[in-house]
Amino acid sequence: MVGAAIGMLGGAGGGWLTLAGQARQQERQQRIDQQHRLEDVRRQAYSACISASKQVSARWWRLAARLRTNGTTADQWEADAAEAHATWAPFSAAVAAVAVVGPGPVAEAAEALRRAMYALDQAGVAWHEAAREAGHGRLADLDARYMEAVAAKREPGRVFQRMAREALGAES
């Protein structure tokens, strides 16, 4: 009888240890899966932010090229300016997505990039508006302001990419 009771207690204890071990393993696997999902979401958000920033730059660059070229028309400038403006919303949304998925240093770098891109946007808008008033786009002071904004956005772009690589563990 005592032997049976000891056997039953031993079996119950072993079963409990097995269940506890399985529960810990399951929790560990859930944490790993959650981390993988977060990494995937971050990778997508960072990639979208980089891509959208490149689209903003490319569209303003196209308008700048037209403004510098003799013989271009206000209608061409308008079309390019409209395309440049249309790229802002996706970029802004991409920065917001990065702010949500983080981590904090990457979100801060994305915000610094957004501010630099906004300065580029404002320089492009000012140049475009002045060109419409002047009837031509060869306005050296506004071209220079635009080029300063182009140069000023490079470092925040590099910092964002570096911070994204670090957050993804891709920086070695």
Score class of each variant (00 low, 15 high):
residue 74 A to C: 11
residue 105 P to W: 05
residue 123 A to W: 06
residue 168 L to E: 13
residue 88 W to K: 03
residue 23 A to Q: 10
residue 33 D to C: 00
residue 88 W to T: 02
residue 90 P to Q: 05
residue 118 Y to V: 04
residue 69 T to M: 11
residue 148 E to P: 00
residue 58 A to Q: 11
residue 3 G to T: 12
residue 65 A to G: 08
residue 92 S to N: 09
residue 166 E to F: 02
residue 12 A to T: 15
residue 109 A to L: 02
residue 147 M to Q: 14
residue 82 A to V: 15
residue 94 A to D: 07
residue 33 D to K: 08
residue 56 V to D: 05
residue 130 A to W: 03
residue 10 G to M: 14
residue 63 L to T: 15
residue 73 T to P: 13
residue 39 E to S: 05
residue 68 R to Q: 12
residue 123 A to R: 11
residue 165 R to D: 13
residue 53 S to F: 05
residue 32 I to Q: 08
residue 104 G to E: 09
residue 92 S to A: 08
residue 63 L to K: 07
residue 136 H to C: 05
residue 117 M to S: 13
residue 107 A to K: 07
residue 154 R to P: 00
residue 170 A to M: 06
residue 19 L to A: 13
residue 171 E to D: 07
residue 82 A to D: 13
residue 110 A to H: 05
residue 94 A to V: 04
residue 55 Q to C: 04
residue 161 Q to Y: 04
residue 128 H to Q: 14
residue 166 E to L: 04
residue 140 A to T: 11
residue 4 A to Y: 11
residue 11 G to K: 07
residue 62 R to P: 01
residue 3 G to H: 08
residue 122 Q to E: 14
residue 42 R to N: 04
residue 98 V to P: 00
residue 131 A to H: 08
residue 152 A to V: 14
residue 26 Q to N: 08
residue 159 V to P: 01
residue 36 H to G: 00
residue 1 M to F: 12
residue 58 A to D: 07
residue 66 R to H: 12
residue 17 L to T: 14
residue 23 A to H: 06
residue 3 G to C: 01
residue 157 G to H: 03
residue 83 E to A: 10
residue 165 R to E: 12
residue 136 H to K: 09
residue 40 D to E: 08
residue 29 Q to P: 00
residue 143 D to A: 07
residue 15 G to D: 04
residue 15 G to R: 09
residue 75 D to G: 11
residue 156 P to M: 06
residue 76 Q to D: 13
residue 17 L to E: 12
residue 127 W to Q: 11
residue 9 L to F: 11
residue 68 R to H: 07
residue 75 D to E: 15
residue 34 Q to E: 07
residue 49 C to K: 02
residue 160 F to S: 01
residue 22 Q to W: 09
residue 112 A to P: 00
residue 71 G to L: 07
residue 152 A to E: 13
residue 66 R to W: 09
residue 59 R to S: 11
residue 165 R to V: 02
residue 133 E to L: 10
residue 156 P to C: 06
residue 37 R to K: 08
residue 76 Q to R: 06
residue 161 Q to W: 03
residue 166 E to S: 03
residue 5 A to I: 09
residue 77 W to G: 14
residue 147 M to V: 12
residue 63 L to D: 13
residue 111 E to Q: 09
residue 32 I to S: 03
residue 119 A to G: 10
residue 95 V to K: 03
residue 112 A to K: 14
residue 95 V to A: 06
residue 25 Q to S: 07
residue 48 A to Q: 12
residue 149 A to H: 07
residue 72 T to I: 10
residue 46 Y to N: 04
residue 132 R to F: 13
residue 4 A to Q: 15
residue 9 L to P: 00
residue 51 S to L: 10
residue 135 G to M: 02
residue 6 I to D: 14
residue 41 V to A: 02
residue 80 D to N: 12
residue 9 L to W: 09
residue 10 G to I: 09
residue 74 A to P: 06
residue 37 R to L: 11
residue 136 H to E: 15
residue 166 E to I: 03
